[in-house]
């Protein structure tokens, strides 16, 4: 049937490794930034003042309800006309962080809501400030509940990072696409690409399963 040629893939492995480096660089930095953004947003949404809450809701709903590619193109193509010129890589990192930050804040919020309100009331009645109650009491309990959905968000960051190839960042997907169209080996390159992305995200999935077991709350989690 199809004449499968592994030689073209083996030949371009150094090239693909460079792409993996770029993809990892963008994903790791975006993940860290997105987590910080998520934390700030979820704190201002659950504990913050009225105006902060309003701002946080607006941010989440605007970012969550627009496609990432559109946001990326706004950063890359629309901002230069307004006088803000960011390099393609920073465009990619910024839009990925903003996008994933909105989703991560929602994940964290669901975790925080699953912690009983009495805990918050008793901590404040013991004299803890809102910030202390959040960081010391509520958040440590919430985070272990949301480990699986949170790691899905990090997996999504890696997968979504492939979109930066549209703005000429030489990440893994750019190299795969270029290899495919230059050598006309579409099946080989796209399958190899899917496999490499799976390896990258698989590490996170594995890590998340381990963490989930370590932080399992006795008596709280249903045994299935």
């Amino acid at each position: 049937m199809y004449n499968f040629d592994t030689a073209v893939i083996i030949e371009s492995i150094p090239n693909l490794i460079d792409g993996v480096k770029m993809t990892l660089f963008i994903s790791v930095i975006s993940s860290i930034c997105a987590f910080i953004i998520g934390l700030i947003i979820v704190f201002s949404r659950t504990m913050g003042l009225k105006y902060l809450k309003f701002f946080a809701v607006c941010y989440v709903e605007i970012i969550r309800n627009t496609p990432l590619l559109v946001q990326l193109y706004i950063m890359y193509k629309a901002l230069p006309s307004l006088g803000i010129m960011l390099s393609p890589i920073s465009c990619g990192i910024l839009s990925l962080s903003l996008y994933a930050g909105a989703f991560i804040s929602e994940v964290l919020r669901s975790g925080i809501h699953s912690v009983a309100n009495e805990q918050f009331e008793s901590s404040t009645s013991l004299g803890l400030s809102k910030f202390q109650a959040f960081t010391l009491i509520i958040f440590p309990q919430a985070i272990r509940i949301v480990i699986p959905p949170l790691s899905s968000q990090f997996i999504n960051i890696i997968k979504n990072s492939s979109l930066v190839s549209f703005i000429a960042v030489t990440d893994l997907f750019y190299r795969i696409y270029k290899g495919a169209v230059d050598d006309f080996r579409f099946v080989e390159f796209f399958l190899a690409g899917a496999f490499i992305y799976m390896m990258l995200t698989g590490v996170i999935a594995l890590f998340s399963n381990i963490l989930e077991n370590v932080f399992r709350l006795r008596g709280r989690t249903a045994k299935i």
Binding site: M85, F166, A168
Partner: peptide
């Protein structure tokens, strides 16, 4: 090299000074 998928994207990139 900056590679784009379409001419529209490529011309746009030149116009915006990319």
């Amino acid at each position: 090299i900056l590679g784009f998928r379409t001419y529209t994207d490529a011309f746009e990139a030149l116009k915006s000074g990319r």
